[in-house]
Design a protein around this nucleic acid. Structure first.
Length: 352
DNA sequence: TAGACGTGGCT
DNA sequence: TAGCCAAGTCT
């Protein structure tokens, strides 16, 4: 029989045969400990399954339950998280464990709204924990689900605007039972069949009802709002090479763009920057040479064009306040962002 | 609400 | 290979 209407049953039948076995998943038919569901969902935010597996198991050995996690010093939590990225997740994880312990008697609330109120839990995670751990009638709309459902109906509305529409579609498909399996089935489908590129439509249980598959446009969904590229910003960077083969560096403020990263001194970056007046902002008096060409870099929200100045100073020249010398041979050990490595390469200091 | 926030893998 | 992407949240 061929279904021309997408149904949760069709998807769940597929899931029962093809579900992935993952460390945080209970065997078929069993419900998972909410602590494990929650921990895995936080770790999986913007992070691949492969990267999470090892962390999840090590974390669980060290912090087997929410009370143990809550009682641990935050430094221990950060250490266990080190390397996973997005470290505010780890701080919120710890804070959340403390709230669950002190305000919910050590049990995660079986209520989507109450889950949503906890630190580090947003709309997606509240739905995922609610459905998977408590079988609440909730949907978990992540990037996978956005892709699957926007393709299913060939949704022209672009993300992120389409989020509320997609959520409604998910709710309209939500089965009366097995909401947790439904959530995981949707994600498995997105991760293994309805992939961003080259979706395996021939293997998809929802191929018959899928409008974009029918129209041959599956891979073009979801539509996305054209990311408006910010206005060009320009600035100058000053590369100083000292006689004993040291380069002048400074550290960026801990917060914000490239927070805490190292860089050669430079000007502010702005739309109205005048390269010809740049040397007024040089970190020290020297015979500055403006290098030909410039360094271009595109950040998430704006393109940057840097004019590079270079100077040589004698060995023994002290570093100006707020900056320091680093041996050229040790630049590889510095926390230099790509754009700054481009600057150093442009000044023939370092290969990228 | 647009922007910040990390990292590793893939093309 | 530099850029894009991956189970988002917070401000």
């Amino acid at each position: 029989m061929t279904d021309t209407t997408a149904s949760a049953d069709t998807l769940l039948e597929w899931y029962d045969r093809h579900r992935r076995s993952l460390p945080w998943r209970a065997p078929p038919g069993k419900r998972t400990d909410p602590y494990r569901v929650w921990l895995s969902e936080i770790m999986l935010q913007q992070t691949t399954v492969q990267a999470v597996k090892g962390y999840f198991e090590r974390f669980l050995l060290r912090f087997p339950d929410v009370e143990t996690l809550a009682a641990a010093p935050v430094e221990a939590v950060m250490q266990a998280w080190a390397g996973l990225g997005y470290y505010s997740r780890a701080r919120n994880l710890h804070a959340c464990a403390q709230v669950v312990t002190s305000q919910h008697g050590g049990h995660f609330p079986a209520d989507e709204t109450a889950l949503l109120a906890l630190p580090g839990i947003g709309a997606y995670t509240a739905g995922a924990v609610g459905a998977i751990a408590f079988d609440l009638p909730a949907v978990a709309v992540d990037g996978n689900v956005e892709r699957v459902l926007s393709r299913l109906v060939a949704l022209e509305e672009p993300l992120p605007r389409a989020k509320s529409t997609i959520r409604k579609i998910a709710l309209s498909l939500l089965p009366p039972k097995r909401s947790g399996d439904f959530a995981q089935a949707l994600m498995d489908l997105g991760a293994t069949i309805c992939t961003p590129r080259k979706p395996a439509c021939a293997l998809c249980p929802w191929s018959p009802p899928c409008r974009s598959r029918r129209e041959g446009t599956a891979e073009t969904f979801p539509r996305k709002e054209a990311k408006k590229q910010g206005a060009l910003r320009r600035g100058a960077a000053f590369v100083v090479l000292r006689g004993d083969d040291h380069v002048l560096l400074r550290d960026r403020p801990p917060r914000g763009l490239l927070g805490g990263m190292a860089e050669p001194p430079g000007t502010e970056w702005s739309a109205g920057f005048d390269p010809d007046a740049a040397t007024a902002a040089a970190p020290l008096d020297a015979s500055w040479r403006r290098l030909g060409g410039n360094v271009r870099h595109v950040f998430t929200h704006f393109p940057l064009e840097l004019t590079v100045y270079r100077a040589e100073v004698p060995a023994g020249t002290p570093a100006p306040a707020g900056s320091r010398w680093q041996a050229r041979a040790l630049l590889g050990q510095e926390a230099l962002p790509t754009v700054m490595r481009k600057v150093l390469a442009h000044a023939d200091i370092e290969g990228i």
